[in-house]
């Protein structure tokens, strides 16, 4: 049991999005493998001290993206999701966002080695 969700209630991002982003990162990097059972909405809400609806919203978002199968009373099952093939324009859009983010990190003084490690973790 190593994958965790970490939220910051004082950051400007909505909590449900923070949860969804982190769960997605854990699933994409295969830190949590297909077939695994995620904590139920109730458990995760209890652990994080947030409203059940907040966690449910994050799970619903991930289910809509094809990452999770939600079943009442059972919880969230991680699916073996087949990655979609985005069109070239979409790939270009992601590349541009990534470049801007990397440039911002470099400007803020984040070392290249740390950025490389983070990228490898996700990939």
């Amino acid at each position: 049991m190593t994958a965790t969700v970490r939220i910051d209630l004082d950051s400007g991002d909505p909590v449900w999005r923070q949860i969804a982003d982190q769960v997605r990162a854990a699933l994409v990097s295969r830190r949590v493998k297909p077939g695994a059972q995620l904590a139920t909405v109730r458990e995760l809400a209890l652990d994080l001290g947030v409203n059940h609806n907040t966690v449910a919203e994050a799970y619903r978002q991930l289910a809509a993206e094809g990452f999770l199968q939600l079943e009442r009373g059972v919880g969230a099952l991680v699916l073996d999701r087949e990655a979609p093939r985005p069109p070239a324009a979409e790939q270009e859009r992601f590349a541009r966002r990534l470049k801007l983010l990397l440039a911002e990190a470099r400007a803020a003084g984040v070392p290249v080695a740390a950025l490389r490690k983070t990228i490898e973790e996700v990939l």
Binding site: L9, D10, V23, A39, V50
Partner: peptide, 13 residues
């Protein structure tokens, strides 16, 4: 001080 919270993602019995 930021209010940071952490929880295990996977289900445990």
């Amino acid at each position: 001080m930021s209010d940071i919270r952490e929880a295990f993602l996977e289900s445990v019995p």
